[in-house]
Design a binder for these strands. Structure first.
Length: 173
DNA sequence: ACGATGATGAAC
DNA sequence: TTCATCATCGTA
């Protein structure tokens, strides 16, 4: 029943992909064991004009995976403490990614990476079994349980981009 | 409300 | 080479 999400899925419009990721499962193989959880919260960072995106200042040593093909991980270190996990979207050359901010029972992007044992070694790797970190569809229907809000912690991007409702969450039942 | 803690990017 | 900033979290 479980279907691994492939590169093609991630190429589509970033906002659509972000909504589609809700209810899918993040899966990690770690020391011979499987860790998995339902994705409940994501944020889209879409294109070079998005002032809240790392890509707004062009290609850099840090953000290069965002400019690469869809379906790869963009993992970066921030605040001197935390790893952030993103899945790259859009065609090669178009910088976009989706930050995975929460899975069921784990809220906050830094807690997600801690729980799944994710660090910089996944940066630029493709989301598949070979790399022990992937996303799968377990046939869960989520239909109209999606809530939209502005993104968290991006005030610096100015009113236009910080107010944009690029954060998507599964509503509580 | 704020400190932890270090990489990043821009300025000098 | 120096500096402010940062897609956060835990404690207060």
């Amino acid at each position: 029943m479980a279907k691994i999400l492939k590169e093609k899925i991630f190429e589509g419009p970033t906002i659509e992909v972000a909504k589609n990721l809700l209810g899918k499962y993040l899966v990690r193989k770690y020391k011979g064991r499987i860790i998995s959880g339902k994705i409940t919260e994501v944020e889209a960072y879409d294109g070079p004009k998005d002032k809240a995106s790392h890509a707004s200042r062009g290609l850099t040593k840090r953000n290069f995976p965002m400019f690469g093909p869809a379906g790869q991980w963009y993992v970066y270190f921030t605040y001197g403490l935390h790893w952030m996990l993103n899945i790259v979207t859009g065609k090669k050359g178009y910088p976009a990614a989706i930050l995975i901010r929460g899975v069921e029972g784990i809220n906050g992007p830094a807690r997600v990476t801690k729980f799944f044992h994710i660090d910089g070694k996944f940066n630029g790797k493709s989301a598949d079994k070979k790399n022990a970190l992937w996303i799968e569809d377990r046939g869960l229907k989520i239909s109209n349980e999606i809530k939209r809000t502005p993104r968290i912690g991006v005030q610096y991007a100015g009113p236009l981009w910080s107010r944009r409702r690029y954060r998507f969450l599964l509503k509580q039942k």
